[in-house]
Design a protein around this nucleic acid. Structure first.
Lengths: 215, 215
DNA sequence: TCAAATCTTGACCATTTGGACAGGTTTTGT
DNA sequence: ACAAAACCTGTCCAAATGGTCAAGATTTGA
């Protein structure tokens, strides 16, 4: 749908603008974002932004595409033969890590969904829904094999998404309540452990050993 | 901070505008919202909106205040003496219910937080943070009394918030993946049960009987 | 070396947007 | 009944905003 928007990144400015736009769109959404604000974030004149991206929507689509292209989910490769506890534990920790590593991407998506996902309906129908159904099947097989408590697999995936993304999307609230300036390593560790352990236990699984090395 | 914005609701239009604004702000955020769009949703001329609310920000604040005033959390009244399983179960189900009953409010808050909570920092510091810390203490007492598994109470609250709000904030995504037009009663029941059971189990609690009446 | 291709940007424009306002209508209190 | 208060809205305006453009600077390739 927007293959024309991502072309050879002629130079560094292309990427600079893409990142600046990602931040602006993440905090203000498509309508709320201002081209001038994007230009300012990028440290470039507005006209220069328009040299690389025809208009606001195409820039927005380019940012979306760029983020989606980055995603390569670990959980893709999991199959029935894998141990559910290990697989889910890794999946959750990976998602938590992503939330802290690239919160902007998470927030941008949150904004898009809040607005009714007008530019992601294709992606959701053609990519995300099949992915979820496919992964849900694997979880169901684990359940059928008696390896974990019977639950609705799709809702389990939602729960993992919700809980992990929360730390990116609601960063301000979380830090505000915890009375912290930023996420530090020990907090991230604590969140990872808590989330994995609680959800696994909730599925009737024994959480893998928390690796206590380092700290 | 905005006591001047909520005055005696002189007539029905006041409320109409407030609700229309809530929807518009919920989907587009403060910057993205258009006064004309709010007027259209309310079925009133724009000038009439400006008769009741001086400007966009004061309308936004009025909507925020209005939502906050509505909230009366069941979990407020819980104390150590209560049974944690019952209390948490009720808390979770109440939150799920709220998500389906008034998703717009949830989305509006999500938007505000995504934008860095510029108009909620006071509320968060003076109301929300104390509330969380206070409730966390109760949970901690349950843990100390050996009634539930040791976890970080604040993170547990985050998890409950995240999971329940997810169904309001990401409604489009959830319905898209489930391939449904809207939330129906049986789905809501399933979500409530799953969420409560999984989290309670995750806390080492026995979920209360799922009431199987009706269906 | 030098011309073509690519990039940069100040100045500009059309439209949208938040908001003001004056004159009219309806409601309220007595 | 009637004046004061409250309400309604068409019209207008200044500022903000997305986007254009042409002229100049820089890079590229042969």
């Amino acid at each position: 749908m927007s293959t024309n928007t991502i072309q050879k990144p002629r130079d560094k400015h292309f990427t600079t603008i893409l990142l600046a736009a990602q931040e602006e769109f993440a905090t203000h959404g498509l309508k709320g974002a201002r081209m001038q604000a994007i230009a300012d974030r990028a440290g470039l004149p507005k006209a220069n932004v328009h040299y690389y991206f025809q208009n606001k929507v195409s820039l927005y689509l380019a940012v979306l595409d760029n983020i989606i292209a980055t995603w390569d989910d670990f959980f893709n490769d999991v199959s029935v033969n894998d141990d559910p506890a290990t697989a889910l534990d890794t999946f959750i920790r990976e998602k938590v890590r992503l939330s802290f590593e690239n919160p902007t991407a998470s927030r941008l998506f949150a904004n898009e969904i809040l607005q009714g996902a007008p530019y992601l309906s294709d992606y959701m129908r053609e990519t995300l829904r099949p992915w979820v159904n496919n992964r849900a099947k694997v979880i169901q097989q684990w359940i059928d094999a008696g390896k974990m408590t019977a639950t609705e697999p799709v809702l389990l995936i939602f729960m993992i998404w919700a809980t992990t993304q929360h730390y990116a999307d609601f960063q301000v609230q979380v830090l505000g309540i915890l009375n912290q300036k930023e996420y530090d390593a020990s907090l991230i560790k604590q969140i990872s452990d808590f989330t994995s352990q609680t959800i696994l236990r909730g599925c009737g699984l024994e959480p893998p050993n928390t690796d206590a090395t380092g700290n």
